[in-house]
Amino acid sequence: MKQKLENFLNIIAHSSLTWQELISKAEHIGEISDFINIRDLCEWQGLGLEIAKDSSGRYELATRKRAISEQIFCVVDIETTGSIKSGQIIEVGAVRIQNGKILDTFESFAFAASVPDEITELTGITSTDLVDAPPLATVMERFKIYLNSAVFVAHNVNFDFTFISQTLTNLGYPELLNRKICTIDLARRTIPSHRYGLETLKQILGVQNTHHRALSDAIAATQIFTHCLNALPFSIQSVEDLIDFSKKAPMIRQKIKEPHLLVQ
């Protein structure tokens, strides 16, 4: 299903379809129809996809023509007890922004019976912090409502997006279908640097806050993302332009000065 879904998203992100074409291609995805009525565009939006009707009566992703300044982006970070296969989410932090302004934030612990020592050492989160935290299912449901159809942004987006999406499916919800952007990919095309880890980019841009806590890292990623947007070429106007640019534009790197050889 994953490849069929990617093909479908790529089509409606870069072209428009008649209603019959849209439904025909959506029907081939399979499992999606187990969760929604594919003929109801509001239900698609509930999965994170905003499909819109253009002036000619054809259908496409709203992000295909929407200006970057008009789009709501949701910058996300999570803390977990381990990998996607063996761990669980214990903290979610997110920032929604539009046109460079923060609209609101989301922050929540999620209950876990225990926290590995190495995670406590990294994040400062202990099992005691999670004793009164809401259940994971409650946090995921609240976050999904908060995210809605915003573009999902994260530093190393595949980790956060996949972990959250897999957690939702494990809890009986459909996977996320939101458009997504990686701030590492975007920074590689707009910020000269030797490295593109969060801490390195924070130092370059003068961002000072707590590291390895969900909301704090989401705020840092928001500042990096905003800096990248301000450095875009003028030709990048729509949200889909931005997504394509983050994946396909030439990468830039800071030139490393070779040390002078000492004369013996």
Results as ranks from 00 to 15, higher is better:
Y173K: 11
C228S: 13
W19D: 13
K65Q: 12
G30M: 02
D241G: 01
L136F: 11
I256V: 14
F106Y: 14
L242E: 05
Q237V: 13
E50D: 12
L229C: 13
E79P: 01
D132S: 07
K53T: 02
T123C: 06
L176K: 10
S238N: 00
L201K: 06
K180A: 12
R58G: 01
A249E: 07
I38N: 09
G124D: 12
C182R: 11
S235T: 14
Q208K: 14
F111P: 03
S33A: 13
S56E: 12
G57W: 00
T200E: 14
D217H: 10
E240C: 01
I12Y: 04
V92D: 07
N158D: 15
D241P: 03
H260Y: 08
M1W: 04
T138V: 12
A214E: 04
P192N: 08
L17S: 01
T120H: 11
V92E: 06
A154T: 07
L171F: 12
N99Y: 01
I11W: 00
D244S: 02
T80Y: 08
T18V: 05
R142H: 12
T63M: 00
S108C: 11
C228F: 10
E240L: 04
G30A: 04
V207N: 11
I72C: 09
S238W: 00
A154R: 09
E6L: 08
T123Y: 03
I51P: 07
R66K: 15
G100C: 05
L215E: 10
S83N: 14
P250Y: 02
F152K: 12
Y59M: 05
E27V: 01
A221N: 08
S55Y: 06
G48V: 05
G57L: 04
I119F: 01
N148P: 01
M1D: 13
